[in-house]
C-alpha cells in the first residue's frame, strides 16, 4: 500500500480532494495530515487542484512504500515502491 502524506492546511486541501476523486484511492487522516493511500499509483492533476506553483511544489509531506515519479506543472504521480 502506497501512502502519500499532505499537511492539512488551507492551501493543500484541494490536493487531497483531487487525489480522492480516483475510486482506487482512499483519503484518511493521521493527526493533522491527509493520508492518501492506494494499492496502485496515486495521480493528482495540478490544474484541477488550482494550486499556485509554490504551494504545488511543496505540498508533499511524506511518501511511504512508494516513490514520486512525476512532480511537475502537470501532475504529481506516486508509484508503488
Amino acid at each position: 500500500m502506497t501512502a502519500l502524506y499532505v499537511l492539512d492546511v488551507p492551501e493543500n486541501t484541494t490536493v487531497a480532494k483531487v487525489a480522492g476523486e480516483d475510486p482506487e484511492v482512499t483519503v484518511g487522516k493521521v493527526g493533522p495530515y491527509f493520508e492518501i493511500t492506494a494499492d496502485g499509483a496515486i495521480v493528482v492533476d495540478r490544474r484541477a487542484t488550482g494550486c499556485r506553483h509554490a504551494v504545488w511544489y511543496s505540498c508533499v509531506a511524506g511518501v511511504a512504500d512508494g516513490r514520486i515519479v512525476q512532480h511537475d506543472k502537470d501532475a504529481l504521480r506516486v508509484d508503488p515502491a
Binding site: A3, V30, G62, V63
Partner: peptide
C-alpha cells in the same frame, strides 16, 4: 529528497496522531 520524504512519512505515522 526521496529519502527525506520516506523518513518523514515514518515520523508522521509515529507522532502525528499523538500530537493532535
Amino acid at each position: 529528497f526521496g529519502k527525506l520524504l520516506a523518513r518523514k512519512a515514518e515520523l508522521i505515522v509515529e507522532r502525528a496522531a499523538d500530537w493532535e
